[in-house]
Design a binder for these strands. Structure first.
Lengths: 253, 253
DNA sequence: CGGATGCAGAATGTATACAGGTCAATGCTC
DNA sequence: GAGCATTGACCTGTATACATTCTGCATCCG
């Protein structure tokens, strides 16, 4: 049996949160078979907490979209078709587009622009430093940070919340499919394009060009489409994507 | 004490669902003061179910956006600023725009077009039948139905789910602000415009004009903006909006 | 041999007991 | 009189016992 995550008894974190994190991890790592029922009692045994926190975690994960309610009761691990993943990315792109537009129309402070520019500068330097073997984990981190800054600039709690939901599906989040590029000879090319879009959207926001900012972010998300397309035809690429076990592949390994 | 809703002991519905519906009702009717903590034990007493179902309902309502987690534990009734309501409507419009675009790009069957057209025809007839005193509840019903059909035509579970979230805030749903018009002398005018947009978006989808379909739905949602603007300055209009008690008004009554 | 039926096991839905923490009011001291 | 410590009530987080429902399998009947 595999212990799920560090079950360090931090008193600061509630059992519910711990259960939620551990359960999400189990689902994403594919230790729970997709489509299968998630038994409360089994999770009690596996996670070392009682039924109540497990139950809370199950409800939250269902709302998050990783689990599905079984009509007769209980929950099962959700599976996603290729089409659903595409749509999830499209939704994320649309909402990020809205965020960029709102930021542009509203106008953002110089400090915010500078903050975002600094983040982009860090990415630029990362790409300059080593053109052949980029530190991808660092890139993913900075990329995620930039997207967060962007959402922040929209200054809308409601939109942030909705975007959080849209990115909850791990393979739909902004950086989820970046690692797929690492096996591609075009990696630097794609990364350059993505980074150029980052620069352009920031410029558009600064100039309050809402429509342009929106269009760029939409197109930006579609890079993920291409990466997904690539991953779907290559198992080794697919393995780099978190939660990929939940996707029903078109080609059986 | 006020009994929340019909507490008919239907065995077919679980206590959890009953608690969730009853609690939502309490929140939306303003029987629980906005910002105030929602005590589990008080709800146990008020709803007549035990803590476990109440707890589940609380978690679900928090995910739904009607409640807010208190850092030290428990939940409180969420309040919304005017700005947040505007943004919620904008998000809904954006997602409905995406739905319309997807439907158009994907192409929908004749049967689906006819289904939607029938719904619009029913609205047309409703408006023809009595130009001075329209049956608003019937209009709201048909309007909601058309919006559902539209989302259905996009044929995307993920998008439907996300839109459901976006419309969970009662004042952000497609028909929430329609009743505000009933007190307006321009009611028929606004209704005509809205209905024309319905016709246009359906035509655009039929002709697979994605960009146009999207633009129309976005603008369509902005009618709600206007109604909100009106309601915010007039308490009597505001009273017609479900969940309006959660909105921090700009003018104190 | 196929289908229906009944039973057993297990799983969830529900209720409640217990423990720890938080917040507010109160009383004491300076 | 004001500020601080203390106490107490309340509230949630957690665990577990009980009830009901569902499921799957075996057996029996047609």
């Amino acid at each position: 049996m595999i212990k799920a995550g560090e079950n360090g008894n931090d008193r600061s974190v509630t059992q519910t949160v711990r259960a939620q994190l551990a359960l999400r991890d189990l689902v994403l790592r594919g230790e729970l078979n997709p489509g299968e029922r998630v038994s409360e009692l089994q999770m009690v045994e596996r996670l070392g907490v009682s039924r109540t926190p497990v139950r809370s975690a199950l409800i939250r994960l269902e709302e998050e979209g990783l689990l599905e309610a079984i009509p007769s009761g209980g929950f099962s691990v959700k599976t996603f078709s290729e089409k659903e993943v595409f749509e999830a990315i499209e939704i994320r792109g649309t909402l990020e587009g809205l965020a960029a537009r709102l930021a542009a129309e509203r106008g953002v402070s110089r400090a915010e622009i500078r903050n975002a520019a600094n983040c982009l500068e860090a990415i630029d330097e990362l790409m300059r430093r080593d053109t052949t073997d980029i530190d991808l984990s660092r890139y993913v981190e900075l990329n995620a940070h930039f997207h967060e800054i962007l959402v922040g600039m929209a200054d809308s709690q409601a939109l942030a919340r909705q975007l959080e939901r849209a990115s909850a599906l791990p393979f739909a989040s902004p950086s989820a499919l970046v690692p797929v590029q690492s096996r591609s000879p075009e990696m630097n090319y794609i990364l350059s394009v993505a980074q150029d879009q980052h620069h352009c959207v920031l410029a558009a926001i600064e100039r309050r060009e809402g429509a342009r900012a929106e269009a760029i972010m939409r197109e930006h998300a579609r890079i993920a489409h291409r990466n997904l397309e690539r991953a779907l035809t290559n198992q080794r690429d697919m393995d780099l994507v978190p939660g990929s076990v939940l996707i029903k592949r078109r080609i059986r390994a």
